[in-house]
Design a protein around this nucleic acid. Structure first.
Lengths: 166, 166
DNA sequence: TCCATTTAAATCGTGCACGATTATTTAGTA
DNA sequence: TACTAAATAATCGTGCACGATTTAAATGGA
């Protein structure tokens, strides 16, 4: 509390100087919610042998396969530095295969194995259980949350693409 | 392939079986938004010598110090396995000190150094710049987002505390 | 007093995440 | 054809995150 009026320390409208934490709390809320969500998934995904990021990768491949590492990375917002080791673990687990594209040896094609395909059904159960365990937010609230997040993400992606050329 | 009507594979209402991705997209949206947000902070925090989690720790200490590692962990939702190395880096950077509490040698007290205190003002500038770079969401939307996230987090924390005794 | 229990941090092992760099292949062009 | 430039993954180094375990200190009885 007791945030004083140090309105001349930085050259911004006094309105902002007095509330230096509110925006951070939205960021912190996103950070916290994301972490807690991952924790919620952990015990459900563990029996399947997946972590949450691995589950995301599998979902992307259930939607479309084969895909390249780059294509998957674009879908998930991750780069090869993160994906390559993750995909190697999924390959070691027998969920997918990685092979160079014969038509373009720079690309690596990801393909699901039978085991990877088979995981799709139990994964649906996970999604349902998450829904059930979900804190009591109304469908309208969930919808609103999803809608605003989509807008936020679109804006953040723009900034992420344009600003680095600063 | 070709997801058929296997409505008896899992014992849930058929309504859910058909929409196995919607809830995940909220989770994925949280995950993505959180990551993009951290990326937005990075170039602003780098000149200060902080990462985003370190910035969160400093914010908690600007609000209240001295604090114990456990107290900080409760505020941030992190445990000592994450905090101990992070705090050692902040100590190595000269931002804070760690010392055993003489009254209870189990506890470690965190105290800001002059350098750590001094960082508070430029950190306010970071918060302002984040607000400015922020994608065009109305104040009402930001408010709504924050409100729903708070509700979500409260529910997730409950689940996180109660469910593990399963 | 002594000892089991609880509490608090630190440590260990695994896995994610990213900026920066490197290696290889393809494409474009003089 | 040769030679640069662009594209694609992989690699490297640093730092976060968490479950599980370990170490040490405080607490609460018999």
């Amino acid at each position: 509390m007791t945030t004083k009026q140090t309105s001349d320390v930085i050259d911004v409208p006094a309105d902002f100087a007095g509330i230096p934490k509110l925006d951070d709390q939205i960021c912190f809320a996103l950070y916290s919610a994301s972490g807690l969500m991952t924790k919620l998934y952990r015990p459900l995904l563990e029996p399947l042998g997946l972590t949450y990021p691995q589950y995301l990768a599998m979902m992307a491949l259930w939607e479309q396969a084969p895909r390249t590492v780059g294509g998957l990375g674009e879908a998930l917002g991750l780069d090869s530095a993160t994906l390559t080791p993750l995909l190697k673990r999924l390959e070691a687990g027998g969920f997918l295969t990685r092979r160079r594209d014969a038509a373009d040896e720079r690309r690596v094609l990801l393909e699901l194995t039978a085991k990877g395909q088979a995981l799709r059904e139990p994964a649906k159960g996970v999604a349902v259980q998450i829904l059930c365990q979900f804190p009591r937010l109304s469908a309208a609230e969930l919808d609103g949350l999803h809608h605003i997040l989509a807008k936020l993400i679109a804006g953040l992606r723009e900034t992420d693409v344009e600003a680095p050329a600063d």
